[in-house]
Write a protein that binds this DNA or RNA. Sequence first.
DNA 1: ATCGGGGA
DNA 2: TCCCCGATA
Length: 333
Amino acid sequence: MGVALRDILAPYRDPIGWEGLCGAAAIDAHNALYQFLTIIRQPDGTPLVDAEGRVTSHLSGLFFRTTKLLELGIRPVFVYDGPPPPLKSRTIEARRSVREEADRQYAAAVERGDREEAYRQARAATRIDGGMIESSRRLLDLLGVPWVQAPSEGEAEAARLAATGQVAYAVSQDYDSLLFGAPVLARNVTISGRRRLRGRTITVEPERIRLAAVLEGLGIGREELIRVGILVGTDFNEGVRGVGARTALKLVREGRFEETVAERLPGFDPGPVFEFFCHPPSGGTVHLSWRPPDPDGLRAMLCDEYSFSRERVDGALERLGMTAGQRTLDQWF
DNA sequence: ATCGGGGA
DNA sequence: TCCCCGATA
C-alpha cells in the first residue's frame, strides 16, 4: 500500500480547508475507487448493489464525491492505471493471494454467522474489476469530468500533471506521489468526513503536503527521498527488514544507501526502481476540459440502470445548479 | 490512524 | 529509549 514514510512526513502534513484546494486536481482513480469500495458498505460488510446484484459502491462514491468537489470549485481529472511495470509483479501477486485468502475466510465467516469477521474479510477481499473501471469512466463522461489513461502507474502520471502545471496538485492517500515528483500532494480529498475508528468517531479532513517543504525540512533532495523509500520498501521493491522511515533517512543522510543495499539486500539492484521513480513512463500532452454534467444521462445511468435513489441523485444535481432542463453554464466556462 | 510488544 | 511492525478498526 504505497511507501511507509508517514513517520518522517507527519510534520509536513498541513491541514487545509477546501478553499485551499480550489483549482484542477489529478486524482489517482484506482486509489479513489478502492477507497469507495472498501468504505461504502453496509454494517454486515456487503457493498451497495443494484436491483440485479451488481456492486455500485464505487459509482456511489464517485458520483457524490465528484459532485461535491465540483461544488467546492475543484476541477478533478481522474487518472487511471495503465499496465503495471514488471517491477510490481511481486506486489501484485502478494495482493492477489491476500484477497484469495480473504475470499475463503469470508465464506467461512458467513457460514458460521460471524458478522464482524465477515465484514473484515469482505473489505480485505475488495478488488476492482474491468466492469467497475468501465462504468466509472462512463459516469465521469456524463459528469463532464475528464479522465486520462496513464502509460503506467496512475500516481506517476498524476504527479507529472502536477509537476507540469496542468493541475494544481495530485490526490492520493499514498506518499508515492511525492517520490514521483508531485510538487503538491493532497490527501483525504476522496474520503473526508466522519469515520468511526475504534469506537470513536473522528473527523478526517483534507491535508496538503508540499514536496519542497519536505525536502527542505529533511535537508535532502528528491533523489535521496527516493532512496529512503527504497530502503523502507515500495510497491516495486522489498525494503530492508527492521528499517523504517527514520532509520532509512539516517542511513541515506550518512551516505550509506549503497552500502546498506549491498549488505542487507544482496542481489538486489536498486537502479531500475530508482529510475522508475525518477523518470516514470510519461504520457503525451493531454488536453483537459471540463464540460457541464448531463443530468438526463446521469439519471438514466444511475437511477434506471443502477437503482440509485432518484431523490439523492436529483439532490446532488441541484446542488450543482443542474435542475431539470436548466443548466448554469457560466460556472464551467 | 493508533496501540502495544519486543528488539536493538 | 527509540523505533519497527503487526494487529485492529
